[in-house]
């Protein structure tokens, strides 16, 4: 449990998917124009990362590694992600129309969000176990959610500011993300397992 919390905090804040690794930047920049849509996309990312990460872990461990098929990793992972997204979309549409309306068009978009595939690839290269990869998926998704909410709120405000015409929109979004990345850099190097971590009593 301590590991779970530590990896969650680490992947959400210290190694934030967007602000430290710049994964999922395309949808981050394109969908952060209004707070409401950013909220929907953020939720969908948490959802899909949390589901695909353990599935990919199981497939990687019991199919790819045990049969020495590692070179098929990319194709298998992207197929898992694409079909999971499709499946999740159908299930959510049937059982929870409210959530479906909230996530809306963002679910299919997520297939090509680098953060999802990147999460699975990081999981392999860092040799996480099943619990850790669930924590990494949820934490990474939560960090992504926080970052997109933050920038959407700032961009809604900045629309009323007097920005040079050439920098309007995309240019300012790049600058703002850079500044937010700098702010998050101050968290780097903190190891929650050693310093201020949550260590449960034995």
């Amino acid at each position: 449990m301590g590991d779970f919390v530590n990896i969650f905090i680490k992947s959400a804040f210290i190694e934030n998917m967007i602000l430290a690794y710049f994964l999922g930047m395309c949808s981050f920049l394109a969908v952060s124009k209004s707070l409401q849509t950013a909220f929907g996309l953020g939720l969908a990312v948490i959802f899909v990362l949390g589901i695909t990460m353990p599935i990919n872990w199981l497939i990687n461990e019991y199919l790819l590694v045990s049969f020495e098929l590692e070179f098929l990793r990319f194709i298998v992972f992207i197929a898992v992600i694409a079909s999971t997204v499709q499946l999740v979309e159908m299930v959510v549409e049937k059982y929870s129309p409210g959530l479906y309306a909230a996530l809306g068009i963002f679910l299919p978009l997520i297939t090509v969000n680098c953060a999802i595939l990147g999460g699975s690839l990081f999981m392999v290269s860092r040799e996480y176990n099943l619990t850790e990869s669930i924590a990494f998926g949820l934490g990474g998704g939560f960090g992504w959610f926080l970052a997109i909410i933050a920038i959407a709120a700032i961009r809604e405000r900045i629309r009323y500011s007097n920005v040079p015409p050439a920098m309007r929109g995309l240019g300012m979004a790049f600058l703002l993300t850079g500044l937010m990345g700098l702010a998050f850099l101050s968290l780097s190097g903190i190891d929650p397992a050693v310093f201020g971590g949550w260590n449960p009593p034995k």
Binding site: A20, F22, F174, L175, G178, L185
Partner: peptide
């Protein structure tokens, strides 16, 4: 640091 790329690209866009 990778943050610098954001500023460089922002200047290119400008």
């Amino acid at each position: 640091m990778s943050v610098a790329a954001m500023f460089v690209i922002a200047v290119l866009i400008w």
